[in-house]
Simulated assay, not measured.
Amino acid sequence: MQPRVVILDYGSGNLRSAQRAVERAGADVEVTADPHAAMEADGLLVPGVGAFAACMAGLRSVHGHQVIGKRLAGGRPVLGICVGMQVLFDRGVEHGVATEGCGEWPGTVERLQAPVIPHMGWNTVDAPGGSRLFAGVGPEERFYFVHSYGVLDWTLEATSEHIAAPRVTWSTHGRPFVAAVENGPLWATQFHPEKSGDAGAKVLANWVASL
């Protein structure tokens, strides 16, 4: 049977292209704001386009932050994409205004430090050894980014010899920023895999296969 994936509809765009891409990756996909469906699915995909504060407001309006927390507490897979990754961190700062995020990871989403903003277009990533998300993806492959903000510092390490440190993938625009994270059932990408051709399709297929 195909794994069932819910793409959480909380008012953030780009839902249909994500749906088509995840369906091509081998999943049965539903786009909905229904928290029960989001809880029961094999995988939950949290998209995100636009401002951090607006996405958090939309997420809270459908209790998405609670659904994410409950799924992760039960070891149920979640994938965040673009701002859907950013909202998983403690907070976002835009134009000097701080907005509380979901708090699943420590860290602050802040403006990129680069001569040209936004970071728009194709870029390579530096994935760590043992990455399941990037399995079968060569280091020369490029992914599609479009963002002005990101996470520039990563502080979460292994908490004990029994709990591994998250696998963090980096990219560079001006200075390094977090491009993807694999942390138990919680995976996320700053780039748009659904817009990243064959390399993005492989990343999504890897996530679907993990379900």
Results as ranks from 00 to 15, higher is better:
Gly101Leu: 12
Gly101Thr: 08
Gly101Val: 08
Cys102Gly: 12
Cys102Val: 15
Cys102Tyr: 11
Gly103Arg: 12
Glu104Ser: 10
Trp105Cys: 00
Trp105Asp: 05
Pro106Gln: 06
Thr108Phe: 02
Val109Asp: 00
Val109Glu: 02
Val109Met: 10
Glu110Lys: 10
Arg111Ile: 12
Arg111His: 09
Arg111Tyr: 01
Arg111Trp: 04
Arg111Lys: 15
Leu112Ala: 04
Leu112Ile: 12
Gln113Ala: 15
Gln113Met: 15
Gln113Thr: 15
Ala114Trp: 08
Ala114Asp: 08
Pro115Gly: 14
Val116Lys: 13
Ile117His: 00
Ile117Thr: 06
His119Ser: 05
Met120Arg: 10
Met120Thr: 05
Met120Cys: 08
Gly121Tyr: 02
Trp122Met: 08
Thr124Glu: 14
Val125Leu: 00
Val125Thr: 03
Asp126Pro: 00
Asp126Asn: 12
Ala127Ser: 11
Ala127Arg: 00
Ala127Lys: 00
Ala127Thr: 00
Ala127Gly: 00
Pro128His: 09
Pro128Ser: 04
Gly129Cys: 05
Gly129Glu: 15
Gly129His: 10
Gly130Leu: 07
Ser131Gly: 08
Ser131Ala: 09
Arg132His: 12
Leu133Pro: 04
Leu133Trp: 05
Phe134Arg: 07
Phe134His: 03
Phe134Ile: 07
Gly136Ala: 06
Gly136Cys: 06
Val137His: 05
Val137Asn: 01
Pro139Ala: 08
Pro139Val: 03
Pro139Ile: 02
Pro139Arg: 02
Glu140His: 13
Glu140Ser: 11
Glu141Met: 14
Glu141Pro: 11
Arg142Trp: 03
Arg142Tyr: 09
Arg142Ala: 09
Arg142Ser: 06
Phe143His: 02
Phe143Val: 00
Tyr144Ser: 07
Tyr144Cys: 03
Tyr144Val: 01
Phe145Ser: 05
Val146Ile: 14
Val146Gln: 09
Ser148Asn: 09
Tyr149Phe: 15
Tyr149Asn: 07
Gly150Ile: 11
Gly150Tyr: 03
Gly150Gln: 07
Gly150Asp: 01
Gly150Glu: 02
Val151Arg: 01
Val151Pro: 03
Leu152Ala: 14
Leu152Met: 13
Leu152Glu: 12
Asp153Arg: 15
Asp153Phe: 03
Trp154His: 04
Thr155Arg: 13
Thr155Phe: 07
Thr155Lys: 13
Thr155Val: 12
Thr155Met: 08
Thr155Ala: 13
Leu156Gly: 10
Leu156Pro: 07
Leu156Cys: 12
